[in-house]
Design a protein around this nucleic acid. Structure first.
Lengths: 149, 149
DNA sequence: AAAATTAGTGTTATTATATAACGGTTTGTT
DNA sequence: AACAAACCGTTATATAATAACACTAATTTT
């Protein structure tokens, strides 16, 4: 499989495989399928909704199947978890190392990922000023996207 | 019951009752008890942990009892939900109208609430720049508090 | 190449979190 | 007193996530 520029999802999956293998991690068929399913979604998806979709081709899939796979994808930054909705969303630029924040449209369900270093730094500084050392951040905004206004 | 300055929790409960009644909402005994229980905790508490505690005095309490009460308290801003841990924490200054962010210590479990207008505005602006209108924000930092370092 | 080790998956069961629905009771209003 | 609305008790169920164990595939060591 090569990056042909023909199919965005295929290309993204290819990039993900390269990324994993470069790190000595195995991008198995199951992991590829789950990642591809998430890429196909326009918004974030719950684990059980994802399971239902996965079952169409992997009839023996179970909750643990999905959660284990999601754990792997999360660990390598290929996907993100939206904490406020318990849903998962594919990440398209796992190779750059930017902080991440989400804009979640409550009307159409679309999730836009933004990468604001300024936002991250502001929170880090606020924390630092009270002696708190930040390890990771959850920043999610709910509202209405441009298209839905 | 008056604000005597003797017991911080009693005083806070008193303030909460005033606040609710000013808004025409009923601060029932159940709501008072749940709010008081949350005030007694040092960190955030899960709904079922709260239920167990509540059962000590309200032996007939059920999940719905707790969730309904939490919903009321959330609606009036007397408590907050920590999305990244599915836990609830009492708010001490529901009367001021500041935005809210949380610093969650993963070592001792303590939750510190901060109110940074700058942080809120930064996120609002970032969103605005891509045409997104923010209705509410979830900002939570995990890490290590000053005491635990 | 065989053995040993590690990583990944299948499967069953269980735990944790949250809501729906309905009936009865209390509170506030007319 | 009658009525309506809000609140609470209760049962059932939906949704989200993990534990534990056996088996298989891949990788490393010998």
């Amino acid at each position: 499989m090569t990056d042909t520029g023909q199919n965005p999802i295929t290309d993204q999956v290819y990039k993900a495989r390269q990324f994993c293998e470069d790190k000595g991690a195995r991008f198995t068929l199951l992991r590829e399928k789950v990642y591809a399913l998430l890429l196909e979604q326009q918004g974030a998806v719950g684990a059980y909704e994802l399971l239902d979709t996965l079952k169409l081709t992997e009839s023996n899939a179970k909750p643990a199947t999905v959660y284990r796979t999601l754990d792997f994808l999360l660990e390598f930054g290929l996907i993100h978890k939206i904490e406020s909705t318990n849903a998962f969303v594919a990440c398209h630029h796992f190779d750059c190392n930017h902080p991440v924040q989400f804009l979640i449209c409550d009307t159409c369900g679309d999730v836009k990922e933004i990468q604001s270093v300024g936002l991250k730094d502001t929170l880090d500084k606020q924390a630092q000023s009270v002696g708190f050392r930040v390890v990771n951040q959850t920043i999610e905004a709910h509202g209405t996207c441009a298209a839905c206004q």
